[in-house]
Amino acid sequence: HHHHHGSGALAALHAEGPLAGLPVTRSDARVLIFNEWEERKKSDPWLRLDMSDKAIFRRYPHLR
Rank of each mutant, 00 (worst) to 15 (best):
I56N: 02
H1P: 10
G21V: 03
L47Q: 07
L49C: 06
D44E: 13
S52K: 06
A15V: 13
V31F: 08
M51S: 05
Y60M: 00
E36C: 05
D44A: 06
N35Y: 12
H5G: 10
L32I: 13
H1Y: 07
L47I: 13
G6A: 13
H3E: 08
E38D: 08
I33Y: 02
Y60V: 00
L22P: 01
S7V: 12
G8C: 12
R48C: 09
P18Y: 05
S52L: 01
H62G: 07
F57M: 10
P61Q: 03
L22K: 06
P61T: 02
N35W: 15
D28I: 02
G17D: 03
G21L: 04
L19S: 06
A12Q: 14
T25P: 00
D53C: 08
R26D: 06
R59I: 10
F34E: 03
H5C: 15
T25Q: 05
S52T: 08
G8L: 11
D53G: 05
R59N: 05
L13H: 03
L49K: 02
R59V: 08
W46H: 10
F34D: 01
W46E: 11
A11N: 04
L19T: 03
E36A: 06
P61F: 04
L63N: 00
K41W: 07
D44G: 05
R48L: 12
H14Q: 03
L13F: 06
F34N: 03
E38W: 15
A9K: 15
R26C: 09
T25S: 11
D44Y: 11
N35R: 15
N35D: 06
L47N: 06
L22V: 03
R48N: 07
K54A: 13
W46A: 13
R26N: 08
E39A: 11
W37E: 01
H4I: 11
R30W: 06
D53Y: 08
H14E: 03
R26M: 15
H3K: 09
R26I: 15
P61S: 03
R48F: 07
K54Y: 11
S27P: 05
H4A: 12
G21K: 03
H3D: 10
L49G: 09
S27Q: 15
H4V: 10
P18K: 06
R26G: 05
I56Y: 01
R64W: 10
K42S: 09
A20T: 09
A11W: 03
G8W: 07
L19Q: 05
K42F: 07
G21E: 03
D53F: 09
H4D: 08
R59A: 08
N35M: 15
E39I: 12
K42Y: 07
Y60E: 00
H4N: 09
E16W: 10
D28M: 04
A12V: 14
K41V: 14
S52C: 04
H2M: 12
G8H: 13
E36M: 06
S7E: 11
P45H: 07
K54I: 10
G17A: 03
L22I: 02
A29D: 00
L32A: 04
G21P: 02
A12C: 13
H3L: 11
H4S: 10
G8Q: 10
A29C: 01
L22G: 01
G17T: 02
A20G: 05
I56E: 00
L63E: 00
E16A: 08
K41D: 05
N35V: 12
K54P: 07
R59Q: 07
S27V: 09
S27F: 15
G8D: 10
E16M: 08
S52D: 04
H2P: 10
H62V: 00
Y60S: 00
A29I: 00
V24D: 01
H62K: 00
Y60L: 01
F34R: 09
V31M: 14
I56S: 00
P18T: 06
M51C: 09
D50T: 03
L19M: 07
H5V: 13
A55S: 06
E39H: 10
F34K: 07
R26W: 11
I33F: 05
L47C: 09
D28F: 04
G6E: 13
H3S: 10
P61C: 03
E36V: 04
H2L: 12
L10T: 15
N35S: 11
R59H: 05
H3M: 09
T25L: 04
A12D: 10
A20E: 09
K41E: 04
G17N: 05
S52W: 01
A55N: 10
R58S: 11
R40Y: 08
P23N: 00
L32W: 03
F34V: 06
P45S: 07
W37G: 01
A9Y: 14
R26A: 13
K54T: 12
R40H: 10
H2T: 11
H14I: 08
A12W: 10
R26V: 15
L63S: 00
E16I: 09
D53H: 06
F57P: 00
H3F: 14
A9E: 12
E16Q: 12
A12K: 14
T25K: 05
P45K: 08
K41H: 11
R64K: 12
V31K: 11
E16F: 12
K41P: 05
A9F: 14
S43L: 14
A12I: 14
K54D: 15
L47S: 11
L47A: 15
A20D: 04
T25R: 06
R30V: 06
D53Q: 06
M51Y: 07
D28A: 05
H4T: 10
S43W: 10
K41N: 09
H2A: 09
A15S: 15
P61D: 02
H4L: 11
L19P: 02
L22H: 03
R48M: 09
A9N: 14
A11E: 06
A11M: 05
R48V: 14
L32T: 04
E38T: 14
D44H: 09
M51R: 04
Y60F: 14
D50M: 03
G21Q: 07
T25Y: 04
P23A: 01
A11R: 03
K42N: 08
H1Q: 11
R58F: 12
G17I: 02
D53S: 07
Y60D: 00
V24A: 04
A29H: 00
G8F: 10
K54L: 12
W37D: 00
M51E: 02
R48H: 10
S7H: 15
I56A: 01
S27L: 15
L10D: 13
W37P: 00
H5R: 14
N35F: 15
P61I: 02
H1A: 14
N35T: 11
H4P: 11
M51G: 02
M51T: 08
P45C: 06
P45Q: 09
R58H: 12
S27W: 15
H2N: 10
P18M: 06
H14C: 05
D53T: 08
L19C: 07
D44L: 06
D50Y: 04
G21W: 03
P23Q: 02
A12R: 13
A15D: 12
E16R: 07
V24H: 04
E36G: 03
S52R: 06
L13S: 04
R58Y: 10
A11H: 05
L63H: 00
G17L: 03
K42E: 08
F57I: 09
W37A: 01
D50A: 04
L19G: 02
G21R: 04
R58V: 11
D50N: 07
E39F: 10
G21C: 06
M51N: 05
P45A: 07
L10F: 10
R48D: 07
N35I: 15
A15T: 14
G6K: 12
W46L: 13
F34S: 04
L47H: 11
G8S: 11
D53W: 09
R30M: 13
R64G: 08
G8N: 12
Y60H: 01
P61W: 05
E38Y: 15
A29V: 01
H62A: 15
A12E: 14
E16N: 10
P61A: 04
A29M: 00
I56C: 02
F57S: 07
T25H: 06
A20P: 02
K42T: 07
P61H: 02
I33D: 01
D44V: 05
L49Q: 02
H62W: 02
G17E: 04
L49E: 01
L63I: 03
A29Y: 01
A11Y: 06
H62R: 01
A55Q: 08
K54S: 12
I33E: 01
V31S: 07
N35Q: 15
M51L: 14
I33T: 02
V24M: 14
P18G: 05
I33W: 01
K41C: 08
V24Q: 07
P61K: 04
A20N: 07
Y60I: 00
A9I: 15
I33A: 02
F57Q: 06
I56D: 00
V31G: 03
W37S: 01
R58N: 13
E39M: 12
E16C: 15
D50K: 04
E36H: 05
G6Q: 12
L19Y: 14
S52Q: 02
F34G: 02
L13G: 02
W46D: 13
V24P: 02
